[in-house]
Design a protein around this nucleic acid. Structure first.
Length: 187
DNA sequence: TCGAATATATAAC
DNA sequence: GTTATATATTCGA
């Protein structure tokens, strides 16, 4: 039985981390400006879900994260291990994966689609274990303002700025007031 | 179990 | 703009 693997790389001043189980499936990803925060966040999640500490290696998925962050690629080579998310989260994640690059949808529209309510959808989106791989940054408020974004489990205005930057690189039309309605995708 | 806390939405002022 | 309230899910005491 092998150990889970944790990989961290950086591009510019942003650090990207991936956590894979002993079958090579992706259990979680995370990114942020402080590599120790990223590593601790993933190591904690590893212990909570897999019950043991990961070994530090290099995973191809980390490089894919950089490309997703920069908007140059949309590839996912690793399988996502969703054993540790609730059935409700799985429904939300399924819809998020369908949002096209360059488009956004809202918490409320996802809720309508899965016959739930906006608040719990927000909760599920916020606890997305695979940021960038599952595009939770494409979920915005009903009035087409950006809404919140957290990194490594903590909210901040820097998070919202990051969300905006990613969407801009995906060619989502963002004006001063908010997102252009032409970019709205209905699930 | 239950109470409180959510990355919300909507209506009304 | 700012409230009040409805709402489903999660998490901890």
């Amino acid at each position: 039985m092998e150990k889970p693997r944790l990989s961290i790389v950086h591009a510019q001043d942003v650090w990207f981390g991936c956590l894979a189980d002993d079958n090579g499936s992706l259990v979680s990803s995370a990114f942020g400006s402080d590599p120790r925060v990223v590593q601790r966040h993933l190591a904690d999640y590893c212990k909570k879900t897999l019950g043991k500490a990961p070994e530090l290696t290099r995973l191809a998925a980390s490089q894919e994260m950089i490309e997703l962050f920069e908007g140059t690629q949309h590839s996912i080579s690793l399988h996502l291990n969703d054993n540790f998310v609730s059935p409700f989260q799985r429904k939300v994640i399924h819809v998020m994966k369908l949002i096209p690059k360059g488009k956004v949808t809202t918490y409320g529209l996802i809720a309508k689609r899965i016959r739930s309510a906006p608040r719990p959808v927000g909760g599920a989106v916020s606890s997305n274990p695979w940021p960038l791989f599952v595009p939770c940054h494409r979920v915005v408020n009903a009035n087409l303002t950006l809404g919140n974004y957290s990194m490594c489990g903590s909210l901040s205005k820097a998070g919202t700025a990051t969300k905006q930057a990613i969407l801009l690189r995906e060619n989502v039309p963002i004006l001063n007031s908010g997102i252009d309605p032409s970019a709205l995708w209905r699930p």
